[in-house]
Design a protein around this nucleic acid. Structure first.
Lengths: 214, 214
DNA sequence: TATTGTGAAAGGGTTCACAGCG
DNA sequence: CGCTGTGAACCCTTTCACAATA
């Protein structure tokens, strides 16, 4: 166990396992085999075992894995057992949708600040929060101890906002703006790019018979 | 050229190349080398050449690629030169954000129908559209010739809605619901899962020093 | 006996390096 | 000479297969 590297696909699978285990736990299952866990998500049993073995051995040979225990270990591995404070940059429709998204809160993510440039939006109340001027992002983020930034600005503003987040000490950014951002080493950046996903669908529709691989 | 398979990562890169080329074209550049194109997105020149070579040879040795021509070829390869009719299932905040998203329209995606189960939402006007009862999804999608479905329902309703879409002849689905969907062979499914992206950020924050691979 | 944990093999994506050509 | 196109090498991920063991 304890490697220094995990592939993006393996990391995504861990998230899936966690969700599957949560539902198995609700169903009252005490143990589960790698095969049953894999079946739930179209993976293979060997893959499940390899993925888990990156972090230790949690199972019993002949029996499988104890469901509540593995669920707890996975949550700890992913780091989702605690509350995480998030800053939203961009008080537009997408920002509002994310803010209202309930699965967010349920997973321990707490929107601690919302920023925008638009004077008509600044000062508006969002639940307990007030939309702040993006100019004050640095001090506000520092004061609130925010660790995760979400960029939901137009493409043009995204890099500038990301820079401000990094300068304020944020080291994990989720970017929804359709533009490639550059961040310094040590900052984790993930992109959700609607255009790319839609173009992949168009490609599939246009090239019947082609396979889109892992 | 003309393979039968492309990796997901290569396909995503093609989308990036297209966007880079569009901006190079606006800047008035006539030709561009694989190195310059790669530099824009942190890729390598060999990767650019390999990706493009899947579909033909578009460059001139010693010179590079003609910008407008390659842009057009890429757009054709991705299938984004035309209008695509899209159906949105879920008239909630996220659906509304996507509906209003301008990059959408600009890329040729046209929301042709919006569906929901909530009687209070059904019948409401969304621009030119009226929110329809999801019970009538099949006939409506068929009548309008919709080819792409976007699922923005709660997790519980997602599979049922996807099934209805497939039954109505849709073969390309973008799923925003945080749940693994099962679709028949021949249907292309892509997921945008906010929980997974956030958990990946938590993992990175929790495991300083770990690298998250491609 | 059923199932894990894991080396070894296979598969496939990326990088290298260079021949080919404008 | 500069840059593309591509076979070969390399590297990483997935799959296989089996010894270990509850």
């Amino acid at each position: 166990m304890t490697a220094r590297r995990i592939s993006d696909s393996a990391l995504r699978r861990l998230s899936h396992y966690l969700r599957f285990l949560e539902s198995f736990e609700v169903e009252g299952r005490a143990t589960i085999s790698s095969g049953d866990l894999a079946a739930r998500g179209g993976m293979t049993s060997a893959q499940v075992r390899k993925d888990l073995s990156l972090f230790g051995s949690f199972g019993k040979r002949g029996l499988g894995y104890p469901v509540p225990e593995l669920r707890a270990r996975l949550a700890a591995i992913l780091g989702v057992g605690r509350r995480w404070d998030v800053a939203l940059a961009g008080a537009g429709k997408l920002g509002a949708a994310l803010y209202a998204y309930d699965g967010f809160r349920r997973r321990g993510f707490h929107v601690a600040a919302v920023f925008d440039v638009d004077p008509r939006k600044i000062g508006r109340r969002w639940g307990q929060l007030e939309v702040e001027d993006v100019a004050g992002l640095g001090p506000s983020v520092r004061a609130k101890g925010v660790e995760i930034g979400i960029v939901v600005t137009p493409a043009e503003a995204a890099q500038e906002v990301a820079d401000a987040m990094v300068a304020a000490g944020i080291t994990a950014i989720l970017n929804f703006a359709p533009r490639k951002l550059v961040v310094s080493d040590g900052v984790t950046l993930r992109d959700v790019n609607l255009a790319i996903e839609l173009e992949a669908l168009c490609f599939a529709l246009t090239h019947e018979g082609w396979e889109i691989g892992r």
